[in-house]
Design a protein around this nucleic acid. Structure first.
Length: 452
RNA sequence: GCGCCGCUAGCUCAAUUGGCAGAGCAACUGACUCUUAAUCAGUAGGUUCGGGGUUCGAUUCCCUGGCGGCGCACCA
């Protein structure tokens, strides 16, 4: 029997000693005896520390308490730990069987900063990232099986777009030009639809130069997928099936527990219309309300100054305050007002609305999708409306992208498109309260202040 | 950006009304050949986040700066 691993615990008994080592395959107990190893090898054990990597050969046996153990007939040091790992002492609760860790490694910021140490001492953290990997693999398989082509589009972009967000700005020396880190993949993927790649998807990082909190990291992973000759109804059905499949493949079940709440990913998901949900929250039909009364309701609810916010922004604020927090189970909110959705096609039955849905889970937005706007004239006028809002003081409007319009002018088939936040889905499936718990190296202020 | 809370040994945390800065684990020395939060005896370990103030005396009270956590705002 040969095993290797990192020393996690050590119990020395004079002429014998017990230890636990751990590697990716798990944990095992080691037993060292003077009269098995001989005096030289046994005395050298004194130089070992917790955290060292050890290789061991010996026979397997069961101790008096029943634990499978390797009795070492030979051992060697594979790598030395010069810096003590913050390994907590563990015990198993005799009643519940749960693992209790004493005096562990608790400081969240140090855990994120030194993820290598966090991973080294917390098997449950390693499992979160294994789950995330299974989830991403399942998403790829799901789309690949449906003839989607995985593509890569630019992260460095001369004009950012596809969402309303502040970008990171950078500079290319040889081209002597300003470039932006992408805030969404959308506009490039739609160019590919124009080019005849009828089903495309991309999993990649987007970058938004905005606040950091439990559900926002400046760089985050987004899945976007687009399918020609589909509409938002088709995409809703696809998303339902996708999430049920992915939940099952990543966690083993379509029901997952998130922060104590059971969440059911088996289709069908709840559907509510934006208009109904918001009007119900407000107690009256918002379409009959003027901008001033919407603003006063929104300011009353959120307690902030919304001077200068357009009607779309006010509706969104109200929706965020009145409706979103209650959407625990997977819920499609459908048919958003046109002023909220500059890239979505007008609703086939009501031109004040667009054919758009957002998926909410655990009170957070997980996906955003629409029947893509494919009318270049309408798209141009929507962009122009955005420019007017910008002129009126709205800071996060969609820029006008002439090349994107040119692409659409060649003719874009009717298309359904979806953007899905990978990190947020990972939070739900891995039952993690913060986006930083599902990102290996979340964005932090640089150490030693001023270094970066 | 605003509010609340926090910062003490490598780690997890104490410290009475303002009165010698402590414990457990880790480290080090010793005892112990089926232990498992091993046990037992001992040793060492500190700019109490920085600066200023009040005081005979500050980990403690006040001011100020830094960093962090949580909440809010921002994130259509």
């Amino acid at each position: 029997m040969r095993v290797a691993g990192r020393i996690l615990s050590w119990r020395s008994h004079g002429k014998s000693a017990f230890a636990h080592i751990e590697d990716a395959g798990g944990r095992i107990q080691l037993y060292f005896r003077l009269n098995v190893l001989g005096p030289e090898s046994f005395e050298d054990l004194d130089f070992l520390d917790l955290g060292d990597w050890l290789g061991v050969e010996g026979r397997l046996f069961r101790t008096r308490t029943g634990e499978i153990t390797v009795e070492a007939s030979f051992w060697n040091l594979l790598a030395k730990s010069l810096r003590p790992l913050p390994i907590g002492k563990e015990e198993v609760d005799p009643e519940t069987g749960e693992r209790i860790v004493h005096s562990g490694f608790a400081d969240t910021q140090t855990r994120y900063r030194q993820r290598y140490a966090d991973l080294a001492v917390h098997p449950e953290v390693r499992e979160v990232f294994r789950l995330r990997s299974r989830m991403v693999t399942a998403l790829r398989s799901f789309l690949d099986a449906r003839d989607y082509l995985e593509v890569e589009t630019p992260i460095l972009q001369p004009i950012y777009g596809g969402a309303a967000a502040r970008p990171f700005t950078t500079y290319h020396n040889a081209l002597d030009t300003t470039l932006y880190l992408r805030i969404a993949d959308e506009l490039y993927l739609k160019r590919l639809i124009v080019g005849g790649l009828e089903r495309v998807y991309e999993i990649g990082k987007d970058f938004r130069n905005e606040g950091i909190d439990r559900s926002h990291n400046p760089e985050f992973t987004m899945l976007e997928f687009y399918q020609a000759f589909a509409d938002y109804e088709d995409m809703m059905a696809l998303v339902e099936e996708m999430l049920a499949t992915v939940a099952r493949e990543a966690t083993g079940d379509t029901t997952v527990t998130y922060q104590g709440e059971a969440i059911e990913f088996a289709p069908p998901f709840e559907r509510v219309s934006f208009v109904d949900a918001l009007s119900e929250g407000l107690g009256e039909d918002f379409r009959e309300m003027d901008e001033a009364s919407l603003r006063s309701r929104a300011e009353g609810l959120t307690g902030d100054d919304l001077e200068g916010a357009g009607r779309g922004r006010l509706l969104d604020k109200l929706f965020g305050a009145l409706v979103e927090p209650s959407l625990m189970q997977p819920t499609f909110v459908v048919d958003y007002p046109v002023e909220l959705s500059p890239l979505a096609k007008l609703h086939r039955e009501d031109p004040r609305l667009t054919e758009r849905f957002e998926l909410f889970v655990a009170g957070r937005e997980l996906a955003n999708a629409f029947s893509e706007l494919n009318d270049p004239l309408d798209q141009r006028s929507r962009f122009e409306t955005q420019q007017e809002l910008k002129a009126a003081g709205d800071e996060e409007t969609h820029p006008l992208d002439e090349d994107f319009l040119r692409a659409m002018e060649y003719g874009m088939p009717p298309t359904g498109g979806v953007g899905l936040g990978i990190d947020r889905l990972a939070m739900v499936l891995a039952d993690q309260p913060s986006i930083r718990d599902v990102i290996l190296f979340p964005t932090l202020r640089p150490e030693d202040g001023g270094q970066g």
